[in-house]
Write a protein that binds this DNA or RNA. Structure first.
Lengths: 148, 148
DNA sequence: TAAGATTATGTCGTGTGCGATGTAAATGTA
DNA sequence: TACATTTACATCGCACACGACATAATCTTA
């Protein structure tokens, strides 16, 4: 590849990654709007449905988000009465995030969302193996990016 | 896959995509800081280095960004004296974005950045073919997401 | 030609995302 | 035990991202 071609948008790896991520998040928009959630809020709930009562730092690690991103986001979820934020008794610096009924109940409605996204992505020629390989590469990349 | 497993974070495709995108953008941070650029600003310049004198709507299409995202971003680049925003004479609704000397000259410094990113991503077992396949899947996805 | 429809960009509002930093609590060390 | 250091979360500042909407210019149609 010529030196000059290095900077062509079509030769960037990160640009289509950036675009795809945003387009997908955008696609989640109307689906999650029915649940009164944004995509990052949905991710928080996904994490809590897996394991309730997590510290902010747990969620931060699980979702690769900084605490200063999570704090206002969690406050809004609390405002929506989907979660409760509680100071830990054993360590007052720690805030435990706990699901409320409304947050728990959303799980039922949320179950069908991933398939609706995958359906769109699988429409034509994208095979299951291709998706699986794609995801494996992503996860590999994340591992490396974490250490960089 | 069981119904309940559909919502596990590890079974989401979009989540690692979202994470990887953010981690990469973050990794660009210090490299671009030397050039006094953010990642989206860098993308704008990449587009202009390919083709100078584009309308906002051209950049919007090329970068998959809305005009209301681009407007303040372009204003900041103009503030940094890297570009000029000019009203078109033939159609006053149209704003043409043109590189200034400072913006042009940044290209030299920017050339080595993509390789530094790729080096990190290619460190271990990620082969060139794997990256190529990954990118092809990304581009395929973007095509579908645009039509959804 | 005039009125209606469409287009290009910008404004407004809201949410997110992170670097830098602050505050209070917990932990470590002498 | 007292002090120094580290930790957990929150605040601050800035940039971005998009839906909704506004304004003015251009295009289309009767």
């Amino acid at each position: 590849m010529k030196q000059d071609d290095l900077l062509l948008l079509e030769n960037q790896l990160c640009f289509p990654l950036y675009v795809a991520s945003r387009l997908i998040t955008k696609m989640y928009g109307p689906l999650l709007k029915e649940l009164d959630l944004t995509y990052p809020q949905y991710l928080v709930l996904l994490a809590l449905w897996e394991k309730d009562k997590q510290r902010v730092s747990d969620l931060s690690q699980r979702l690769f988000l900084e605490s200063n991103t999570l704090t206002p986001l969690l406050k809004r979820l609390e405002q929506k009465e989907m979660i409760i934020r509680e100071r830990s008794v054993s360590d007052e610096r720690t805030v435990i995030i706990r699901l409320r009924k409304r947050g728990e109940n959303l799980k039922e409605k949320a179950v069908c969302i991933p398939n609706r996204i995958i359906d769109t992505l699988s429409e034509d020629t994208t095979t299951e193996n291709e998706i699986r390989a794609f995801k494996a590469t992503l996860e590999n990349m994340i591992g490396k990016l974490q250490m960089a």
